[in-house]
């Protein structure tokens, strides 16, 4: 530690001119002075720097955009980051495995969350290659800011009423949800399933008093399967996923496209692996992809 003293003087100089940007330098210097300084701090700063970098530089994405023809199987490689609606979790996970089998050099990573949250993250510069929300509004929000383009519809999802196993409250349609004594859980209006549920209830002329407006559709499913709520309005795919823990009841409004969730998909503007992203979209739209989606209860587009 013979060089400790000049180092300390330099550090003190930095301290005197402490600006919000200084900590990065300070950590690096502190790490030099004390080799035992927690690596976490250094990592932390590195993380911050990486986050900033991805914000401004899109050179790789721009380069990728120039290649227009999709490469054949086996030529793709690298990581593929898919941001998808929570309701796609099971179907996409299965599709991901099939895709990786077809393209062994590609690793597919998913980020499943509420569509609106994902849209927000992409607008803030999150490193997504593919965006697959559960509504056109979220997609529109991203495309309007130029962060994705040319969306395609890959699936539709119908609303359904999820009730407790055995349907103890004898619910047969939307009208029964207004009965006093029925504890109803809906999605919050901020998320697609909430908007659709509101539209369906309005169309049926039913006024309900929901006990809770859950922040995503899986939370509604959880409340019903745990027995806290007697019923909830969810997607047909959720009824299927709930298996034997709860059962579904049709909403009694058939074939109205305005009451269906639409699943668009698009490559993001800052995609770092645009080639794989396009291949993924083609794969989902292919016969095999559509068959898998149907298996989980999705309707074809």
């Amino acid at each position: 530690m013979s060089h400790e003293r000049p180092m300390r003087r330099r550090l003190r100089g930095f301290l005197a001119r402490l600006t919000p940007a200084a900590p990065v330098v300070l950590v690096a210097l502190a790490a030099l002075v004390a080799p035992a300084a927690p690596a976490a701090l250094v990592a932390l700063v590195a993380l911050g720097a990486a986050g900033c970098g991805s914000d401004g530089t899109n050179t790789s994405a721009a380069a990728n955009d120039r290649s227009t023809t999709a490469p054949g199987p086996g030529t793709l490689s690298g990581d593929l980051q898919v941001f998808a609606a929570a309701s796609l979790t099971d179907a996409f996970t299965e599709l991901g495995k099939a895709f990786e089998a077809e393209h062994p050099k590609v690793t597919v990573t998913f980020d499943f969350a509420a569509s609106s949250a994902l849209a927000q993250q992409i607008d803030e510069g999150a490193p997504a290659d593919v965006f697959a929300p559960a509504d056109e509004a979220s997609m529109k929000r991203v495309t309007e800011r130029g962060n994705a383009s040319d969306p395609r519809i890959i699936a539709r999802n119908r609303l359904a009423i999820l009730v407790e196993k055995g349907n103890p409250k004898g619910i047969t349609g939307l009208a029964d949800l207004a009965e006093p004594g029925v504890v109803l859980a809906l999605c919050a209006p901020a998320v697609p399933c909430g908007r659709l549920a509101d539209a369906a209830l309005e169309k049926a002329g039913v006024r309900v008093e929901p006990a809770s407006l859950e922040e995503n559709v899986k939370a509604v499913v959880a409340k019903v399967t745990l027995g806290e709520a007697d019923a909830g309005i969810v997607y047909a795919t959720d009824v299927k996923a709930a298996g034997g823990k709860a059962e579904g009841v049709g909403i009694g409004i058939a074939g109205d496209p305005s009451l269906e969730a639409v699943y668009p998909i698009a490559v993001t503007k800052q995609a770092r692996n645009a080639a794989a992203a396009r291949a993924w979209i083609e794969f989902v739209r292919s016969g095999e992809g559509q068959k898998t989606l149907a298996k989980f209860g999705f309707l074809s587009p």
């Binding site: 301290l15 402490l18 900590p23 300070l26 210097l29 502190a30 004390a34």
Partner: peptide
């Protein structure tokens, strides 16, 4: 203690 002050500042 300069190291503590630096890390504390961070």
């Amino acid at each position: 203690p300069i190291v503590a002050v630096c890390i504390g500042g961070v």
